[in-house]
Design a protein around this nucleic acid. Structure first.
Lengths: 142, 142
DNA sequence: TTGCGTGCAAAGGTTTTGCATGGCA
DNA sequence: TGCCATGCAAAACCTTTGCACGCAA
């Protein structure tokens, strides 16, 4: 909640670099931990969690949970926006692809949510889940 | 997955009755447990989980996992399901409240996503993040 | 009677927290 | 030097599982 992490440390740099490398794919804390361990420069689990929490707060990383029992998945989405540009994402549940949407249509959605439900949508954090066109096609032919 | 619960027991009846009572609202296992404890007829946690799992399998109950750390939410939706009644959720990033929305507006969103982006939205898994009206008000006055 | 359901306690797994140490500025 | 970040281990948490007992059929 009150994570700051204002210093620039080696762990932070390497974590960020690795996340960018895996950008768009989903990854668990265990996998991140494993990666650095096998690379010969392990990073403590707590540290990974602390940095991820901060990045999620900033909107650079998205966190989602499938089950309460399995570990959470994180995905690197990118640097925080270019001011003003609204950016939504959708993620395909089949192939895992993460797609960015820049579309006026969603302004309507935001407006509706605010006017009818008093809810101020946070576009950076909201991800639509579903099945993308490619996977939808494949599914039909099977 | 392999839950059977084929016998008709007192616990099953009371659990079902309580779930129907709360129909449409979200509830956690802890709250269910608390309810029966204060009612003087406690039901074991394991039993609650076992029945909920079965009901989720059968489609009578929806299960939502928002965070890995907070407990899962369950929602009784009855036997009617599967034929319509789309249900979205939004989660307040400030107070953590989870609210569900039954609103025709979102059919438009679904349609748009499908027709313009070829994306078949999965309403059950999609959660809007943002700030709810209560927390929005509070924020203004601070 | 048979076999399933229940409840307790313990296990299993993920994430968070406390605290001493070491690093950044 | 003064904080802050790190890492370890322990704690906290939710959920599942093992097992003996009791209840449904």
């Amino acid at each position: 909640m009150t994570t700051k992490l204002k210093y620039k440390t080696k762990q932070h740099d390497e974590l960020l670099a690795f996340l960018k490398e895996t950008g768009g794919r989903h990854i668990t804390v265990a996998e991140i931990s494993e990666h650095f361990k096998t690379a010969g420069k392990p990073i403590g689990t707590a540290t990974i969690y602390r940095h991820l929490e901060k990045m999620v707060d900033e909107g650079a990383v998205n966190k989602y949970t499938i089950d309460n029992n399995s570990s959470a998945c994180f995905e690197y989405i990118g640097e925080k926006t270019h001011t003003g540009e609204v950016c939504f994402h959708y993620k395909c549940e089949v192939c895992g692809k993460l797609v960015h949407l820049h579309c006026e249509e969603f302004k309507e959605l935001e407006k509706h949510l605010y006017e009818h439900h008093g809810f101020m949508l946070d576009p950076m954090r909201t991800v639509f889940y579903g099945v993308c066109s490619d996977c939808g096609e494949k599914r039909k032919t099977e």
